[in-house]
Nucleic acid binder design. Structure first.
Lengths: 258, 258
DNA sequence: GAGTGGTCTAGACCACAGG
DNA sequence: CTGTGGTCTAGACCACTCT
């Protein structure tokens, strides 16, 4: 299954050579997604090295996210999940007018079952960065809406929205279910016609909490997306802080040439 | 400097405890950016463990990007690099008309010295995905331009552009230096006024080659950005495949509400 | 219980940086 | 040359999974 040997005379450390052999076996498809790698004992015998060396090799592949180790079971080739594409026009008004939230509309297009859980809605004092983005004074009161999205049972992203309290109070936005079209529909009903969205994209390694919430494989990064919604008068009406499993998403955008 | 001991009776592995102690010393500021950690020998004595255990602890911090090891010198606390912000209008025509490339214009705004190296320019057959994006038949001839960008000597991104050969041949685009305003200026001179850019953003762990080219800390992800440039007739005129060190960038975009 | 990965030790030798 | 990190061995014991 994994042929070839190691060259102790080579400059390249043995553990990297073993990692190379395993990696190319995976890339060739000799080891498919979900399949188990040879055990440590077997690799020790096959390449004539000590356990520590095998562990270094496998450790490399783990840090690359190519494989995942399951204690007591084995080391497995990671299944590459299907990518979800976030379209440039995903917040277009026509989607809201159809009564669908952006996530629902996208799930429908991708033919997966969408689910939202861990919904928490409460007023709070804005953190400095959120207040800055919303153009509010430090510590201003905001409505916080946090939730987790799942597709076919797999967590894909967590999101936390912040809405100025003056805008949210007394509306369905303070309810767990804000009604058809989501909070953007409610914001527009309250007289703030949406004008544009600004998004900032970063990527980083997840915190331990995020690993749990998104069921991330060790060594897999997240995409951080902070979106600010502005009305037609360029007043910030919402900030949404999203953390996505990087492996599941492609974000697409359009840039002007002028 | 780093006080406290390890608890061999604890459930938490000793190497993780040592990593915790060092990490919190760094977070507290007892070990500042650029400072050297105690040597392996010193840590072995201090915590009464073998070299392997110390190496595991330091390995954890390295994979988190908290420290970097320099062979023969020591292990150092990593300085958190400044973020580079890519603006939504970074390809606006006014920047090209000022004779500056997008990277130069941005470097100037950030007050860093920009440098480009590893430039390779050659014709080749397009890979399937590139041909698809350019709307060419499979295996069509394209001009390939690859290069690496550096700011203040630090590699920040690699980029590879693909331009249909019919469009590039006989123009300064086939030269190493395509002249003022970069290849977008040349494309416009050849009669293809640029209309829009489409960008697709992904994040993932780097390949070993990318770790080298971008001098990435182990465990730090990259942002992949594939941009397709279209002229005003919606003809694809260039595809640019960029790999950026995720720690150095914030990408900002605008989305329409309509 | 058998097989798997996870942690740790004690010691060896190598490669690189700097005085 | 000394001190640093990098690689490797041989062996031990533990924790988890499956049967």
């Amino acid at each position: 299954m994994v042929e070839g040997g190691v060259d102790t005379a080579s400059d390249r450390p043995v553990y990297k050579q073993i990692a190379d052999l395993l990696r190319s076996a995976i890339e060739r498809g000799d080891l498919g997604p979900g399949e188990r790698l040879p055990s440590e004992t077997e690799l020790m015998k096959r390449y004539g090295v000590a356990q520590g060396t095998v562990r270094q090799a496998v450790g490399l592949l783990r840090s690359e996210g190519v494989v995942v180790a399951e204690h007591g079971r084995g080391v497995f080739v990671r299944a590459r999940p299907r990518l979800r594409r976030l379209a440039h026009d995903r917040f277009a008004r026509r989607h809201r007018e159809a009564g669908k939230s952006a996530y629902d509309a996208e799930a429908e297009a991708e033919k997966v079952t969408a689910l939202v859980d861990s919904i928490r809605v409460y007023p709070d004092k804005a953190k400095d960065e959120i207040a800055r983005r919303l153009g509010l004074r430090k510590g201003a009161k905001v409505l916080v809406r946090s939730r987790r999205y799942l597709s076919d049972g797999q967590p894909t992203e967590t999101a936390t929205s912040y809405i100025p309290w003056d805008l949210a109070k007394g509306t369905p936005m303070v309810e767990t279910n804000p009604g058809p079209g989501g909070i953007y529909a409610r914001i527009e009903e309250s007289g703030h016609r949406l004008g544009r969205f600004a998004e900032e994209v970063t990527a980083r390694m997840p915190t331990p909490d995020e690993v749990t919430a998104l069921r991330l494989a060790p060594g897999s990064p997240v995409i951080g997306l902070v979106r600010t919604a502005y009305d037609v008068d360029d007043l910030a009406v919402e900030v949404c802080d999203t953390v996505m499993s990087a492996e599941l998403y492609v974000l697409s955008y359009e840039l002007p040439a002028t």
